[in-house]
Write a protein that binds this DNA or RNA. Structure first.
Lengths: 211, 211
DNA sequence: CTAACGTTTGTCCATTCAGTAAAAATGCAC
DNA sequence: GTGCATTTTTACTGAATGGACAAACGTTAG
């Protein structure tokens, strides 16, 4: 089941070069979007000439496709870890934290993904309807069971997941806006801890003062 | 204080045509991003020739700039309405609902904005650092007062506002993903009501079961 | 009618950009 | 080394696109 199609059989050099190119492509695509990026930019960022780059990747599309495919797997990992058998609130808190850590550690991936969805997900709609939907369905079932058992408050599991995605990815996708509003002085290393504390609080207890 | 600079002194026809162009430009820019859109596309959508369009707008930049400027005002209106003097929870619930309604009624504007921020806000960073920051600072002060008075639970007002932005705009910006995950059968007219109910619940009470 | 003005169109140009072709250089097995 | 495969460079093509411009068209005031 592991990589069922074409074992590309690459030399060490090819693997390394492809890696370097993808790294550069991620940088460029995530800041300029697909149409806003040029092969020349990517080539420059990867430290090689455009035709040389095109020796390793057939086309611009090809690079983008490769990036997106690799991305989705990493992206869903935190959700996959959501575990039936442990304490619900701890599990959800853990999920939020892992997702926020991804936003912190992989902001370029997040923006690449956001760009793709914003444009209507032309290249990954099938993946969203298939793999993504299945996973979310599965985890939603888990959450529903928690609710039925009275272990978390009744709520819509799908929208819950959406809101976790939205709030955490906001810190990578809208980073510029966050920084502008918080002001560049207050915006040190502690900001992700602040966000984490806030989100944990919000999702667990909400705004209404607890009796 | 109304339109302090250059009264453009336009004929009725000019106003109408410019309106028609901006409408078309919004449609095109919001689906393809700035670089992904061509003047020809916009001209076609507006039902006129490219040179004709360029008679009304100096350049592609010009159209984009005009759209973005108009946008921010509308965009901040819901937050402006947040009122010191009324019940905090009602006020915040009202803000969430208004913001969600904007996401429903102006998805193209939302995506245009998201695109701009994603690319690093090259054209509106000053506005974010100025107008936006001031407004948020002002409203954050109100929220802090509510907290001090014990009328809402202690939390970070800035991150609270961010999370309201994130969750509501998610339904316009990531609409494709939301639809793909919910499945197209369950995805009828009621979805915005579902989202509204969920968010209200989340922000007010969180997930922990109330005693 | 006609001069003046605002509007529209057809045509053109320069640039950018994805992708190709083929030669040149490099590495590598023997 | 010699011959073969891989990699890199130089030079180019063709399409897309933003924008310029002048001529043509229409409308209206006198």
């Amino acid at each position: 089941m592991n990589a069922p199609l074409k074992p590309p059989k690459r030399t060490r050099i090819q693997t390394e070069k492809r890696e370097r190119i993808l790294e550069a492509a991620l940088e460029v695509f995530s800041t300029n979007g697909f149409r806003g990026s040029t092969i020349d930019q990517i080539a420059e960022a990867a430290g090689m000439s455009k035709p040389n780059l095109l020796y390793y990747f057939r086309s611009k599309e090809d690079m983008h496709q490769t990036l997106i495919s690799k991305l989705l797997d990493t992206w869903l990992e935190p959700l996959r870890e959501l575990d039936d058998s442990r304490d619900p609130l701890t599990e959800l808190r853990g999920y939020i934290r892992r997702k926020l850590e991804m936003a912190r550690d992989y902001p370029r991936e997040s923006r690449l993904f956001a760009n793709e969805i914003l444009q209507g997900a032309p290249r990954i709609l099938p993946l969203l309807e298939g793999e993504l939907k299945s996973l979310v369905d599965e985890k939603a079932r888990i959450i529903k069971n928690w609710i039925r058992a009275g272990r978390i408050a009744p709520t819509d599991p799908y929208h819950l997941i959406f809101s976790i995605w939205a709030t955490t990815q906001h810190y990578s996708d809208f980073d510029v806006q966050v920084r502008a509003v918080l002001g560049y002085d207050h915006y040190g290393e502690g900001r992700f801890e602040d966000a984490a504390r806030f989100l944990e609080n919000l999702f667990l207890d909400g705004l209404r003062p607890r009796g």
